[in-house]
């Protein structure tokens, strides 16, 4: 079977870690010029066995990791599974072609086929990791959505106890968002995105206690226009902060000015 070239999509490396990893993987395998003679006691077969073992380890770990992913559902699941099947297919092709290569490493035709198989395998692996990176972003955004729901619930709370409970839950969620984004944000390729995200986080932290205090006060003085205004303003700023976070995580500018902020 002729190996199919992997489907390419436009991809923008968002984090330095992913950029380094993927660049390293797609480094041109055809540039291998240094021949390595077999050492005494070494068998060529062991190199093929090693590729097969590493492939199986990758597939196994990928399968486990995907199964544990709580946001992998529907068409996205199909997409990831199909990308992983591509790694499996091109991986076993590599093993097969590698076995042929070691029967005669001087054959340029066998070497050409092996290099092509290697390129196909590494391309499918990169494609799979690109999709995994998008999944990482989706998980963080899901946490942000959950936190925003909690904030919205604060507005409709009818007792002081409910306001307090929701506020406690919100503090927990802010901490969760901080933990899950800390490394990724520090790792962003674009420093302006990093600044935007940090600004959003500061906005969230500043306005959360204001929202809590004004919501509680409004419960006792529902006709106080000033309190209502404070409450709505804090809520609006918090929504802006969430929007900025989502934009940065999705690779866009989180520029506050573009979000309709009046200043």
């Amino acid at each position: 079977m002729v190996p199919q070239p992997p489907q390419r999509t436009e991809f923008h490396f968002q984090t330095i870690t992913v950029q380094n990893l993927l660049s390293e993987l797609i480094r041109e395998v055809t540039t291998i010029t240094e021949a390595r003679p077999l050492q005494p006691g070494e068998s060529a077969e062991s190199f093929v066995i090693d590729v097969e073992a590493k492939l199986e380890k990758f597939l196994q770990n990928a399968e486990i990791t995907l199964n544990e992913c709580p946001v992998l559902t529907g068409s996205r699941k199909g997409l990831l599974q199909s990308a992983l099947s591509d790694v499996e297919r091109t991986g076993y092709q590599m093993v097969e072609v590698g076995r042929e290569l070691i029967k005669d490493t001087s054959s340029s035709e066998r070497r050409r086929r092996a290099v092509e198989a290697a390129r196909n395998l590494l391309s499918t692996m990169v494609r799979f990791l690109e999709l995994c990176d998008q999944l990482d972003v989706l998980m963080i955004v899901t946490n942000i959505d959950l936190a925003q729901e909690e904030y919205n619930g604060l507005k409709s709370a009818t007792t002081e106890q409910e306001i307090y409970d929701r506020y406690r839950a919100i503090l927990g969620q802010i901490e969760e968002i901080e933990t899950s984004t800390r490394r990724r944000v520090g790792d962003l390729v674009d420093p302006s995105q990093r600044d935007d995200f940090l600004a959003a986080r500061a906005l969230l932290k500043t306005h959360t206690p204001i929202l809590y205090g004004s919501t509680k006060a409004l419960l006792h003085h529902p006709t106080n226009a000033g309190l209502r205004e404070n409450c709505e303003y804090a809520h609006q700023e918090i929504n802006h902060a969430f929007e900025m976070m989502r934009r940065v995580l999705n690779g866009q500018s989180g520029d506050y000015a573009n979000l309709g902020h009046a200043g």
């Binding site: 390293e24 590493k54 692996m125």
Partner: peptide, 21 residues
């Protein structure tokens, strides 16, 4: 979580391609 496995697989492929018996 998959970075280590990916690098190991690439290294194994590279090793295989570089042997000249």
């Amino acid at each position: 979580r998959l970075a280590g496995n990916s690098r190991q697989l690439r290294a194994a492929v590279e090793e295989l391609l570089s042997i000249q018996m």
